[in-house]
Amino acid sequence: MAASAAAMNQSFRRPRRVLPGFGLTLGYTLVYLSLIVLVPLSAAFLRSAGMGWEGFAAAVTTPRVLASLRLSFGAAALAALINAVFGLLVAWVLVRYQFPFKRFVDALVDLPFALPTAVAGIALTALYAPNGWIGRLIEPLGLKVAFTPLGVVVAMTFIGLPFVVRTLQPVLEELDREVEQAAATLGASGWQTFVRVIAPTLWPPLLTGFALAFARGVGEYGSVIFIAGNMPLVSEITPLLIITKLEQYDYPGATALAVVMLVMSFTLMLGINALQTWAHARHGKK
């Protein structure tokens, strides 16, 4: 009601703008956004439109492309799942418990945001290579991580962790402890309280964190290529295949593949936005 009244008001009276600079700042924003982001991005779509539907379909359904898409999306999903489980645990521990050096640990969770991906890539490779600190331990168990698809999962897990932790932390901090205490006084066990009382609030942020980590993993390049081994059909991720095609001057092939990834990423992004709106609506209802 109030909203429609305000809308009516607006249609009768032009809103009074007291502060200056609206035209200047919005104009600059739109021009800069178009020049840096929108025009270059549309170049990819227009270029691939010139290929025709059949050429496009042929370029993105070769066995090598399909294998890379399977790996990029499969490994990203697995890594996001690992992060959903351990990220929830890390966020829970950071919010609920006190332990020595907690502030330091909390700050380090953001390392994957701050550490250049190439550095992360060579560091993880050094750890998991057969003679590395971790590789040496797992080699006798018959477990190979470096230069296999498993290495891709490890790199994507590293890169995605902060997304889950940082999405969950504020929600966990805002949880109403009294509700948990009420559940406890009514005889619920710790686990029952978690599953019945806490978990329902955590689903939306957990899903958001999962989706953010997944989206980041799908497009990730720097931290993956060193540890992956990059064998076509086996451990070659899609972003690397795009670069390979570029280096072979196969611009249409690279562009078509980029468009497939862009469409998937934008869909994911809209999904994440919807998730956040949903989470917020649920949060607001309380």
Partner: peptide
Amino acid sequence: LITLIDLPFAVSPVISGLIYVLL
């Protein structure tokens, strides 16, 4: 507009380079 500003976060770094090669 806010969604459009966020757009580069959703783009793979490799594609961020590729679009400038195309231009």
